[in-house]
């Protein structure tokens, strides 16, 4: 089984729930457990929120692109923005590191992504944007059909 989807939307905070619900609906075909579904919704929410807050600093003219690929029980997700980028990725992924404490951010987004997924990668170019790639193998929940 293989499948693919791609969605692009305005960097508006209203679209955070749209983004996570859309990805959740797409991966439903893998029969995820409730826990797997929550993990995927959470990491999508984290990455999209980062694009909006940090990538575009809430300038709603930006766009966010999500691609999701399914191959058997493997899911691969990329969340991309074309905004500010990250100067120092090693620093950014430290638990509790945030560049925006005044916005009540706690610096946990990347830590959550790393924890909830099997594989996590950031590609970022200052002033060009950031791409976060996340991968996970779902447990084989479909054994009843095999």
């Amino acid at each position: 089984m293989s499948n693919f989807m791609k969605v692009e939307f305005a960097a508006k905070s209203e679209n955070e729930s749209f983004a996570r619900t859309t990805v959740a609906a797409f991966i439903a075909q893998l029969d995820p457990t409730v826990e797997e579904l929550t993990e995927i919704k959470t990491v999508v929410s984290e990455a999209v929120t980062n694009a909006i807050i940090h990538g575009y600093e809430e300038n709603e003219e930006g766009t966010v692109l999500i691609e999701c690929e399914l191959k058997d029980q493997d899911i691969s997700l990329t969340i991309r923005d074309f905004g500010n980028g990250i100067e120092d990725v090693d620093e950014a992924i430290q638990p509790m590191y945030t560049s925006k404490p005044e916005l009540e951010r706690s610096g946990m987004g990347f830590t959550i992504m790393e924890n909830f997924m099997d594989h996590f990668e950031i590609e970022s170019i200052p002033n060009h944007g950031t791409t976060v790639t996340l991968r996970k193998k779902f447990l084989n929940n479909q054994s009843a059909y095999n």
């Binding site: 929120t49 009540e104 706690s106 987004g109």
Partner: peptide, 13 residues
Amino acid sequence: HFMDSSGLGVFLG
């Protein structure tokens, strides 16, 4: 039913 790091920030604040 759902929360992300934004909730952590609100509670901590």
